[in-house]
Every structure is written in C-alpha cells, then in structure tokens.
Design a protein around this nucleic acid. Structure first.
Length: 920
RNA sequence: GCCGAAGUGGCGGAACUGGCAGACGCGCACGACUCAAAAUCGUGUGGUCUUACGACCAUGUGGGUUCAAUUCCCACCUUCGGCACCA
C-alpha cells in the first residue's frame, strides 16, 4: 500500500474544521499580516482549474507567514449580487437568492477540497442584510459629505451649510458642479428645494441629470469601466448615450489623491500605469476667447498654450451650451441638422467613425486674444462635451485631429513650433523652437508654455488648469438584484433614511423586470415607501458598491454597531498582500481605493490606501485538443497525416485525450454522431493537434479541480498549479505534467516509510551532507516565498527529496524541519507526517525552521574557467582562496596549458566565488 | 496611433545583482523488474559535425557596450494586455 491521499486529506480537513485551526482573532502582542484574495462572484459554472491559482498562492503565503510568527488574517466570502443570477431569475422566475445560495454552496464545497486555511467564521456575502446595512450606511455618509479642496478631504455637509449661512458661496474651494454664486442672504432666503438643489452640487453621492451609458438589453445604465468600445463588458450588448437622472459618486474629487497614492503602494508598473491613464491627468490652461459681436466668451482647455499663435479656428462640441446662441441665421439650419445627426449616432457609430472628418461652421467668429484676428467657430463631434470645457482652440499645425479638420475645410495652417514638416502632417511633439509667435519666438516649448501662462493670467483671459479624464461614477442601476438605496422622496426632493432604519431590506417582487411604465423592478414591490408614506428610491446599487469595503468588514464581520470596530481596524489596518486578476484595474481597484480614502477622511479606517501590495495572477488558459475530420465524411485523420486530406479541425474533449493521443473508443461514445467514426492512424495511434485558447465550455478544454483532486489529491493539485510557472504570467493548463508532481508526493512519503509502507524514521545524527541539503532548501524556499516565486520552490523541494532519496536519509533531524517547510504548499501530507513523527499539535502552528549558516556556505568552489568568455573546463578550489592564488592555481593546470598553446594570457579576471576568465 | 508586459529545447519553465544557458518537471528513447501490462527504478535527451576526444552554432531579428550579455543600450519584428478623437 502506498500513500492514501484520499483518506488522509479528508481526515485532516475534518480535524482542521472541528478544531477551528484557522480561526484568528486580534492579538495585540503579535504582529499582524493580512492576506486577501479577490472577492469571487459565485457563478453557476463552479470553479475551473484556473480560479484557485491565486487562492493557492495566497494560502501558501498565509501559512508561511503564520509559521514565521505573524497573526495572519486570511478570509473569504462572496460578491453575491450580480447580473448573471438576475438574468437567470428573469428566465426562470426563480428568486436570485435561491440560485446564489446554491452556487455558493457549490463553490464552498470545491474550495474546501483544496485545503485552504481560511477563517470561515469571517465569511461575508454582499447580499445579506447584515452586510449591506453597512454599504447603505456608507452611502449615507457619502451623501452627507462634500470635498473641501482647501483641506484636501471630505467634510460633513453641515460645515458647508454653516459656511453658506455666514458667507454664501464666496471663496468656497470645493469639488462641485457649477452653479450661480450666491450671498449669505440669498442662501437664507432660498426655499428648502432650492437649498437642497444647491447642496446636491457638492455632495459626494449626488443625483444628477446627465448623459449616461444606457444599455437597453440589460435595461440599466452602466459605469464607464463597465463599457468597452460601445458594448457592455458583461454580455457584450450595445450601449447608447441617454440623458437620465441618476445617482453618482463624486470620485473625481479624489483624482489627485488617487494618483498620488500610487507612489506609496507596491503594485505592478503595468497596473499603476493603467490607473494613471484612467485618471488621465493633463496640465494646461483654460483661456477665454471673446466671440465677435456677442457678449459671450468661449472658454477652452489646452495642454499646449505655447501654440496659441497657431490657433486658426475654434471647435465646440455640438452639445455645447453656446452653440445655438452664437450661430448666425445663415447657418442655423445646417447647425441644427448637424446637431441632430450627432445626437442620433450611437456611441458605437461615433467610435467607428473616428477617422471621418465632419463638422459645421456656425457663422460666428472669435477674436484671437493676442493677434486680434477673427477666427471662425465650428462645431464637430470630435470635440467631446464631457471633457475640459467642451471647446478647443484648434492648432492644425501641431495637432493631428485639427490638421485633418483644417485640410478638410481648407482652413489656414500656421506653423508655430519648428521641427516638423507641416506640408505633410502635423507636428505634435513637444520639442522645438517657437516661430511666428510674437513674444515667445525663439523659446523652447517648455519655456514658451510658462511664459504664455504668465501672460494669460496677467491679461486676465485665463489661468493654469489641470484636467482629468476620470468621470464621476454612475451609481444607480435599474435592476433588482442589488442593494436598495436608503433614500426616499418628499415632494420630489431626495432624503436619506435615518441610520437606525438600516438595513433597508430588498423587497419581494412579482417579476424581475421593469414595470410597464419603464420603472425599475423595485417599483413592483408592495408598499415600497417609508412608514410615513414617502416613496422609496427604486434604483439599486451597482456591483462595485458591495465589493468596495469588504476587506474592512472581514476585520469585524459580525459587528452590528459599526462597519468595523476601532480596535479591530487599528490592529488589522489594511491588506498587506492582495492577490487577484488585473481585469479589475479600472473598476474595483479604483473604487475601493476611493471608498477607502473617504472612510479614512471620516476617521473610520486608519490607512489611506487599502491594499499595500498587490499581485496579479496570470490567466490560466486552456489547451484545446483537435481531431481532423475529412470534409463530408465521418472519417478522422491523425494529426501528421491531415495534410493529405481536405480536413476540418474539430474540438475534442480534453478528458479523452492523453499526451495528445485520442482514446478512440471514448471518442465514439462521446457523441452519438461519432459512433460510427473511422480513423486514419499513425503508428497505431490517433494523434491530436492542440492550441492554446481561453478555457471555455465551448472549446471542451475546461478542467475541473475536483476531478484532479479525486485522482491525485489536493496537495498534488496545489503543487502542480504552482509548478506551472510564475504566478503573474499567463500560461496554458496541460494536465499531463501533473504526474511528475504526483511522483514527488509519493517519493516524499517513501522517505519516511519502508518498502512495505511501515513508518520508519531514525534518531541517528545526520551527516554534514544531509544538513547541507536541508538548510540550502530551507533558505531557498523562504527566499522564493518572499519573492512569490512558487514555481521555483516546488522544484527546490523536488531537488531536495531526490537528493535525500539518493542518500537514503530517513533521519528525524532532517525530515521533521523539511515537513514544516513543505507544509504551506502541501498541508495534508505534511500534517500527516508531522503527526506520524509524534507531534501532537498542528504543523500549521509549527515554527518555520531557521537556516544554520554554516551549512549553506560551501568551503570548496568549482570554478568554471573560460578562455575569451568560452567555458572550457572546471577546477575545484577552496572557496576562501585569494584571487591571485586562484589565478596561479588555474594557470598551473594542464588544461590551461592546452588552451593557451604557449601564448601568454593578456589578462586574467577572477571573480571570487564565481568564475575565472582568461583573455588570450 | 499611444502606454505596458513578454519572446529561451518537442512542451511548461530555470538562470534573483552581467559570471558554467537549459535547473526542475512533462514528453520521448533505451534498459531493469514482470509470463505480460501497469506501477516503480536506472540511463540518455538543444542543434550540426565527429567512431571517439572534442569542435562549432544556439536565448525573436540586426547592431552596440563589456574580459564576459538570456540579463545593459539602440533599432526592428512578433504575441498578449490596457487606452484611444481626452485637446
């Protein structure tokens, strides 16, 4: 009998659960470490082999840190609200809670089998009232807050109200929407409705009527990160622009802090770059251009004020508020029809027509602030209403879009920065000397920018300005399966519920669809109103609401007095290590940082950034197998013979292919269609082709972890997932290699057991050679874990076990520390061996062994000797030998003589402990 | 178009700070055990030339720096990811 992994793994999983081995609590005298996995959405399909990759890595790290003396928080829960469950509910009429519950049970079952060290007592689910109570609570705090740019943080809205009572809106520096300035007296004389509508411009959670991404197929609006190239990320449905009254979060208030914070956290450069681009900071100037014959000014934003003398026309977004006001009678019809055309275009059409130049002259002219020349004003949809001021000064010589526009409408092009050839194309680079530019002629771009800025401010026609691409986040969804807003309406004015009314529970509805009048599903709920009879908000919150602070709730998940207790958050602080996919770069990872910064401002959390270190696990791709069917027949040709026939590749289930050889009988039984299939074999086998693709049911390449665990055990699965390659790299899954890891597990077992499987470990003193193997392994493993190089750890364990097997070493002093070292990777077999070695407590709480320095330093070194950089032979010398002695020893050898061929070496380089290179 | 990451045997990958390229594993070949198979164990395994000793070539391509380059620099090619009328 060999190692019985099924029995052993089940046994320890049960004991760990019963003993609450992985339960943690605040221990003030112990250093904390918080390891978090990204919140999974429990889909109906269950886990495939790619999902647990990050979970295994974080589990190894957690177990390792625990053995290093840390108090490790390692929780898990479910992002349970979401579209798939609701879409399923619409189709089947089943309550999404039912399917969600079922999917969670399946997830949990799969997770449990892998042997994770989660503290399940801390599990949270976003769809449970005790959890979403705090999502709603945070919304109320956002609603009751405004962002003071002077203090650079969120403050209570009452501070603002007090200020208005004293001073009106004068000198307020806040993140807000534009409104007419008012005095203290004006404020006091305003009606309740007027005051509330002013405050709405300041609140961090606010209601606003603007253009939003409307997805008809999903029946809801979407945030910018949920839309890609005009289609919804979930479901790939077309999205259009629509003017609607929606809740927003004023995330733009935090643009600068979100940008600054990136310097303080250990995330990959690529991820930081994605966030930087998403925030899209751009420094420049806003400048007023007077409209000829009107009292209006057009305010434009430019990042290149140095090119102002090259501005030969102006462009407004079609929706710009001045468009119709300045259009002359002559052009009115054409302008109106252009605006209409632009309005009709879907977002998708607009994107696909990017290269087409279109626009319309308004008949109006601006007066250039420096030259006094008249320059024509156009409208065009290449200028976006939502960015900057929705208006630009066009400098065709130095902006490619303006260049195309000018060529198309035959407008003048004036070169103002030398260096390009504007006959051919625009010169957009920020390098060169200014020409044709009056007082900035001869300056370099950089100096010209600062000089123009000074002048603009001096003349009073503009100022330095910073713009961000980041937009406020649309926070309402016209869906059922999400958090209800703690909001009611009195005379059409929104108010938030008192905190003691929370949670506002999701009501039952008769169908998960909008009402006939187009109201969201919650409008179907009976008595959807406050106790005083005021109607409640019918929108629900988006997916990112529940996932923005879950890591905080894990610190104190059952608290019904607060989101988190002071002592818990002061101990656990923030996440030390966060592992998950890079696909959340512009969604969850920005929202959570924003949410955390807000909670930091109101004093609820103690760290400004939520996730100190973040590792992106690479995607596990599928490895699809193919058979080649001769067209129009039921005949299949082996891979290398397919060229002789006219064939069509067909995906075949990877479960009936082993080492690219098809199990022909299984194939016949796989699908009735192939019952009578004929095969053209090579060397008696049917060889399949293969390709790396996304892991997906339709490609028949999905591998389920449960099947592998049953066949090889959880420890083998864990090791193999790590062995596959670097955690951050995308890589294909190929089940074939798992046998090697499986052999390693059995080889390990045999170190402790005799031929007939009796446990046999001696108390004999190990030799220096054995100690060396052990301590070099311990050192390597701990270095590898610290730098998240788990694949090389696994091979180090293999090397170690191979070497100990060669020495037939079964000595306790070697094997016991080895078991501790390996236990974070393969917890089940190590726990079993640990107990067989006579230990009573769990290996989980054993101390990670210390490296004994003398065993990792070698006293002899095998020097490779190179001639002109080519390695020719090696020589064994004492490790502490001086370079000059090494040189002498090497030159004395017969081998050296041979390669020198009587020549004198020009130069001899000795790198102590590394290499000898002789230049001839 | 812009930004980021990556290109190493038949395959996954290793080489951490410029110092023996290919660790470890898969696959493959041969051998041992076996009536046989599986399992297990052993040996070999980048390419070309050579009976052999060995020599030469080789980390996407082409240059460069260096005694020495998978590693640093420049140009280009390919793949993947992100952004894309953002003024």
């Amino acid at each position: 009998m060999e190692y019985n992994f099924n029995e052993v793994e089940a046994k320890w999983q049960k004991i760990w659960k019963e003993n609450k081995t992985y339960s943690v609590k605040v221990e003030k005298d112990k250093p904390k470490f918080y390891v978090l996995d990204m919140f999974p959405y429990p889909s109906g399909a269950g886990l495939h082999v790619g999902h647990p990759l990050g979970y295994i890595a974080s589990d190894i790290y957690s177990r390792y840190k625990r053995q290093k003396g840390y108090n490790v928080l390692h929780p898990m829960g479910y992002d349970a609200y979401g579209l798939p469950a609701e879409q399923y509910a619409i189709q089947t009429g089943q309550h999404p809670a039912t399917t969600t519950e079922r999917n969670i049970a399946r997830y949990r079952q799969q997770l449990d089998k892998i042997g994770f060290s989660y503290d399940w007592d801390r599990e949270v689910r976003t769809c449970e009232p005790e959890y979403y109570k705090w999502t709603q609570w945070t919304f109320i705090q956002l609603y009751k807050s405004w962002f003071n740019k002077k203090t650079n943080k969120a403050e209570n809205i009452n501070v603002l109200v007090d200020y208005f009572n004293e001073n009106g809106s004068v000198n307020i520096d806040a993140a807000c929407a534009e409104h007419e300035p008012f005095s203290a007296n004006d404020w006091k004389n305003m009606s309740e409705a007027e005051q509330q509508s002013i405050l709405m411009n300041y609140r961090l959670a606010y209601l606003s009527e603007t253009h939003v991404n409307w997805c008809p197929a999903l029946g809801t609006v979407l945030a910018n990160d949920e839309v890609k190239e005009g289609f919804s990320v979930r479901g790939n449905h077309p999205v259009e622009r629509k003017k609607m009254n929606q809740w927003f979060l004023r995330i733009t208030a935090y643009s600068e802090r979100l940008l600054d914070g990136l310097d303080k956290i250990e995330w990959s450069d690529s991820l930081k770059e994605i966030q930087k681009n998403w925030i899209g900071k751009s420094e420049g100037a806003s400048v007023l251009f007077k409209v000829k014959d009107f009292e209006f000014n057009i305010e434009i934003f430019t990042s290149r004020p140095d090119t102002i003398f090259g501005a030969t026309f102006m462009v407004l977004a079609p929706e710009h508020e001045l468009t119709l006001k300045i259009t002359t009678k002559e052009f009115e019809n054409q302008v109106l029809s252009y605006i209409n055309e632009a309005k009709k275009k879907s977002e998708r059409e607009r994107i696909s027509e990017v290269k087409k130049v279109s626009g319309q002259f308004t008949g109006a002219y601006c007066i250039h602030p420096f030259t006094g020349e008249n320059i024509p004003v156009y409208i065009s949809d290449y200028v976006l209403a939502g960015y900057g001021t929705g208006a630009i000064m066009a400098v065709p010589a130095h902006d490619s879009r303006d260049y195309d526009f000018a060529k198309h409408f035959k407008l003048p092009i004036i070169e103002v920065v030398s260096g390009g050839n504007i006959e051919v194309e625009s010169y957009d680079a920020k390098e060169g000397k200014l020409i044709n530019s009056d007082f900035i002629n001869g300056l370099e771009v950089k100096d010209a920018i600062s000089k123009v800025l000074l002048k603009i401010e001096e003349v009073g026609i503009g100022k330095k300005q910073i713009n961000y691409r980041l937009r406020d986040a649309i926070f309402s969804r016209q869906r059922y399966w999400g958090e209800p807003f703690p909001v009611f309406y009195k005379n059409g004015i929104p108010y938030v519920l008192d905190e003691d009314k929370l949670p506002l529970e999701l009501p039952a509805v008769d169908a998960y669809l909008p009402t006939e009048s187009g109201q969201p599903p919650l409008a179907r709920a009976k008595n959807w109103q406050t106790s005083d009879g005021y109607p409640l908000e019918c929108n629900t919150m988006p997916g990112f609401a529940g996932s923005s602070a879950y890591y905080i709730r894990y610190m104190d998940p059952r608290n019904n007095k607060a989101l988190v207790a002071k002592d818990a958050v002061e101990y656990w602080r923030n996440v030390d290590l966060y592992i998950g996919g890079a696909e959340h770069a512009t969604g969850h990872l920005i929202y959570a940082r924003f949410w955390n910064k807000f909670l930091f401002d109101i004093g609820l959390v103690v760290e400004d950034e939520p996730f100190k270190k973040l590792i992106n696990q690479g995607m596990i791709q599928g490895r699809s197998s193919f058979v080649y069917r001769v067209k129009g027949s039921n005949k299949f040709v082996s891979y290398n013979l397919r060229k002789d026939f006219d064939t069509m590749p067909i995906h075949v289930d990877v479960y009936i292919v082993h080492n690219d050889i098809l199990d022909v009988e299984a194939f016949r039984n796989w699908n009735a269609e192939y019952k009578t299939a004929e095969f053209v074999l090579e060397n008696g086998n049917y060889v399949c082709g293969w390709e790396v693709e996304k892991m997906s049911k339709s490609f028949h390449n999905v591998v389920n972890p449960d099947d592998l665990i049953e066949k090889y055990g959880a420890d083998t699965l864990r090791l193999y997932e790590m062995f596959l390659g670097p955690i951050e790299q995308a890589k294909p899954w190929d089940t074939n290699g798992i046998e090697g890891v499986f052999r390693f597990i059995r080889k390990l077992w045999r170190l402790f057991h005799s031929r007939d499987n009796n446990f046999e470990v001696t108390e004999e003193k190990p030799t220096d050679a054995e100690f060396k193997i052990l301590h070099k392994t311990i050192k390597k493993i701990s270095e590898d874990i610290e730098r998240f190089s788990f694949n090389t750890s696994v091979s180090a364990f293999m090397v170690c076990v191979n070497e100990l097997t060669d020495l037939k070493c079964n000595k306790r002093e070697i094997l016991q520390p080895l078991v501790v070292t390996l236990s974070s990777f393969a917890p089940h077999i190590c726990e079993e061996l640990w107990h067989l070695l006579g230990n009573e407590t769990s290996v989980v709480n054993a101390k990670f062994p210390d490296v004994i320095q003398k065993y990792v330093e070698d006293d002899v070194k095998v020097y490779p000797v190179s001639f002109n950089g080519k390695m020719r032979f090696t020589i064994e010398l004492p490790a502490n030998m001086k370079p000059s002695e090494v040189e002498a020893e090497v030159l004395k050898t017969k081998d050296a003589e041979k390669y020198l061929q009587g020549n004198k070496p020009k130069k001899v380089i000795v790198v102590p402990g590394k290499i000898v290179n002789i230049v001839v």
